[in-house]
Design a protein around this nucleic acid. Structure first.
Length: 397
DNA sequence: TCTGGGGTCCTAGGACCC
DNA sequence: TCTGGGGTCCTAGGACCC
């Protein structure tokens, strides 16, 4: 999708159409999640704070994100993709990979499929998207990235050399600013140069990644499509506070809140974990994490909380706290098990009942007594969200 | 007027084991 | 008198992605 969240907002509110729009969260420390193409002209970028954006584009319109709209649209769009192939990987809330190798002949070729999907999405949701077609997902994604907005591009194997020769490294999916800088230092600035670079040099300087880098420079990629939803490796939440915290009690209360969000999501999707990580960001943005390994797998709020708290006890805080995060990892699927002790079973029933209430009436409607406050700033959904599964977060019912 | 939140994967050093 | 080599697991940080 092109400027997905912003496009959805412009579609649902005609007054926003043709204007510079930015979708943001609701706190005072929010940043731009998506900006419309009209706002991009002014240099407004994702991740910018609202003051910077306003300075660049004084008449920008800020819209607080509406998760339900985006998740609904994303889920509905899946149905369109599946009309053309069963092999669909939902990569993020606004991106999908379709393998049409075995079905394109039924629809008049890959371009015809791209066209048809673009048309259906425009008709049904009123938003533009860009389709990229290629011999693998690296190239398909590149084709899409360089043809935005409202584009359709097929990069055929015979066009590869031409497209890659002078392409800056950063355009490639998987090469970010750091890698790009490092490669530049070796005189490698374009994908063409990367494809011709010495394999031993790359292997030497970049390890395993180096092996892939050369292949990427040549436009090769053998990553399969993940058609089946993958089990998650971690479940976590973090929160930047509207004001930095210094009081121990406040910090503890926030950790409990985050532990509950993590525990509830783990329970809902039936996962348990045995690593708990606490993330701390100070006022000066210095960020660090500490983790601990538990003797058993758990998804109980209180166990997660207790362990996060013992990590906190081991840290000597040297500054006010801007952000806290709690994450559960080393996950396994929860099996239904018989509990020997009634006590454990009772606790489980209690959690289940609380989860049901919160599922039905909204987050934090029923809470532990030690919560100091229950006001929760609305958040924009992460663009990495995928429909169904554990990433189904914070969607009000 | 400071800078979100959800993830995955890789690395490097250290503890520990045989 | 001075110190191998194989392995796993754990931890913290960083790069990258949307």
């Amino acid at each position: 999708m092109d400027a997905f969240f912003a496009s959805v907002e412009q579609q649902s509110n005609p007054k926003l159409r043709g204007k510079p729009v930015a979708v943001i969260g609701s706190g005072n420390r929010t940043v731009i999640t998506t900006r419309s193409y009209e706002a991009r002209k002014f240099g407004v970028k994702t991740g910018m704070n609202i003051y910077e954006a306003k300075k660049l584009c004084p008449h920008i319109i800020f819209v607080v994100g509406n998760n339900e709209k985006y998740t609904y649209t994303c889920t509905e769009m899946q149905k369109i993709y599946l009309e053309y192939t069963p092999d669909v990987e939902i990569y993020s809330i606004d991106e999908a990979f379709l393998d049409v190798t075995t079905t394109y002949h039924l629809f008049g070729g890959p371009e015809a499929i791209g066209c048809a999907i673009k048309k259906k999405i425009k008709e049904k949701f009123g938003i533009n998207c860009t389709a990229g077609i290629g011999p693998n997902i690296l190239i398909a994604k590149l084709a899409s990235d360089i043809s935005k907005p409202d584009g359709l591009r097929w990069i055929k194997p015979e066009d590869l050399n031409n497209v890659l020769e002078d392409l800056p490294l950063k355009e490639l999916w998987g090469i970010g600013s750091r890698l790009s800088e490092k490669l530049n230092a070796f005189g490698i600035k374009t994908c063409g140069q990367l494809g011709r670079a010495s394999l031993s040099l790359l292997r030497n300087k970049f390890g395993i990644i180096g092996e892939h880098l050369k292949a990427m420079g040549m436009g090769l990629c053998n990553r399969p499509l993940y058609v089946q939803e993958q089990d998650p490796k971690s479940i976590g939440h973090s929160m930047t506070f509207s004001k930095d915290l210094s009081q121990r009690k406040e910090i503890e209360a926030e950790i409990l809140k985050l532990s509950e969000m993590v525990g509830r999501r783990a329970r809902h999707y039936k996962f348990k974990g045995r690593k708990v990580t606490l993330i701390v960001r100070y006022s000066d943005f210095k960020t660090f994490s500490r983790q601990t390994t538990l003797p058993d797998y758990t998804n109980h709020t209180h166990k997660i909380y207790k362990n996060a708290l013992s990590i906190l006890d081991s840290i000597f805080l040297t500054d006010k706290v801007r952000l806290l995060g709690v994450s559960l990892s080393s996950l396994i699927r929860e099996k239904e098990q018989m509990f020997l002790f009634e006590e454990i079973s009772k606790q489980k029933e209690l959690l289940k009942a609380m989860d049901m209430i919160n599922d039905r009436y909204g987050d934090f409607k029923i809470i532990w007594g030690s919560y100091l406050k229950q006001c929760e700033p609305a958040r924009v959904i992460s663009p990495a969200w995928k429909p169904s599964g554990v990433r189904h977060i914070n969607v009000k019912r």
